[in-house]
């Protein structure tokens, strides 16, 4: 039996401690790295050039600022049955997709594909033809690629994409369904947070040249309604963290993840037993789609489809107070279209 000399022992100790330190350094890199260098600021820049996107809380001041050269509506509402016509009319009224993106842009569309339980008729997931039409419109405007993604909670993304019918329409339109792997999430600081100081966001969503938020309007126990702002929860990893102090934390998230365009699908709305649904008797056909650059305004208008006031949704009130968008949809420039004729 060979004896281990004191020297050998010390060598081994050295190697061992070195190894552990190296391992800690490597794992340390992982958590330390993103926050200082990857602040959310750069991702917000694409928002600035858009003419009316900087929200102005008081209605009086907007009235005086309103006459800017190309006067686009702030809110567009379309009524009718054909989803693709909704999208074409709505985007055209807002000034065309070219207003929101340059040729060669990298576009991400975020619908609500929360569960793989039912087909779109049950109104738990966004209308697949609306998503498909948005993909088409983006590609026609010269987008380099259009990706569609969500992070379902009630089953795998693969099943949910398929069951919702969205996969089929997106592929047919020439877009890509992307599965949100945990590898692509990064922790970001939320600079002016009230409650949620940091959270892990799917980085590609912040990097996209154009982010389109396409929720379906439906009933929700906690949020009362789940609309555009609530749909942003699908972009983060730890949804559990939002459920505490929901009305503040959701708005904190909305300061970080800011869609450039919100399209609310209210063709079929789920009036009860949301967000999962499963009863056709809970579904009300409203044949309406809402378009705005301001998620808060779009959400506020959507409350009227449920016989509610925007003031009844705590997170909308908080979002308006913190300057994310406008609650007073009655006071903005609205254009409504009936696309059936």
């Amino acid at each position: 039996m060979k004896k281990v000399s004191r020297r050998d022992f010390l060598h081994l100790m050295g190697v061992g401690i070195g190894g552990v330190t190296a391992a800690q350094l490597i794992s340390g890199c992982e958590t330390d790295h993103p926050s200082p260098t990857k602040n959310p600021e750069p991702s917000l820049t694409p928002l600035q050039p858009l003419p009316t996107s900087t929200p102005t809380p008081s209605p009086q001041s907007t009235n005086t600022q309103q006459p800017t050269p190309p006067e686009y509506p702030y809110l567009v509402i379309t009524h009718g049955e054909d989803p693709e016509q909704h999208v074409r009319q709505g985007i055209k009224a807002l000034g065309g997709m070219e207003r929101f993106m340059k040729s060669g842009a990298d576009v991400i569309i975020k619908p609500n594909i929360c569960v793989p339980y039912h087909t779109y008729e049950y109104a738990a997931t966004t209308n697949p033809w609306i998503v498909g039409a948005l993909v088409k419109v983006c590609l026609e405007a010269g987008a380099k690629r259009v990706r569609v993604m969500d992070f379902p909670f009630g089953g795998s993304a693969k099943d949910s994409y398929r069951k919702s019918g969205i996969e089929e329409q997106v592929n047919a339109a020439g877009g890509e369904m992307e599965i949100m792997t945990t590898l692509k999430y990064r922790e970001f600081d939320i600079p002016n947070a009230v409650s949620l100081q940091k959270t892990s966001v799917y980085e590609e969503i912040l990097k996209a040249d154009l982010l389109i938020d396409v929720p379906i309007a439906k009933n929700h126990g906690l949020a009362i309604l789940t609309l555009g702002l609530k749909n942003l929860m699908g972009t983060i990893l730890d949804r559990g963290a939002i459920h505490n102090d929901f009305d503040n934390r959701l708005v904190d998230l909305a300061t970080l993840v800011r869609p450039h365009l919100t399209v609310i699908d209210a063709i079929r709305t789920l009036m009860a037993n949301g967000p999962t649904g499963g009863n056709l008797s809970d579904v009300k056909v409203q044949n309406t789609v809402i378009f705005s650059q301001d998620t808060v305004t779009a959400d506020s208008y959507a409350t009227s489809l449920f016989g509610l006031l925007p003031q009844q949704l705590g997170y909308l009130v908080n979002a308006a107070n913190r300057g994310i968008g406008r609650l007073d949809y009655q006071n903005v420039k609205i254009e409504e279209f009936n696309i059936n004729g």
Binding site: F153, L222, H243, T276
Partner: peptide, 26 residues
């Protein structure tokens, strides 16, 4: 339970319930 014992808003179980008529009500 966060709602029952801490008197804070939490309805995750209700939200998640997959039944067409939810087996958890508020």
């Amino acid at each position: 339970c966060i709602a029952w014992s801490d008197h804070q808003t939490c309805i995750v179980c209700e939200e998640m319930c997959p039944l067409p008529q939810k087996a958890i009500s508020l």
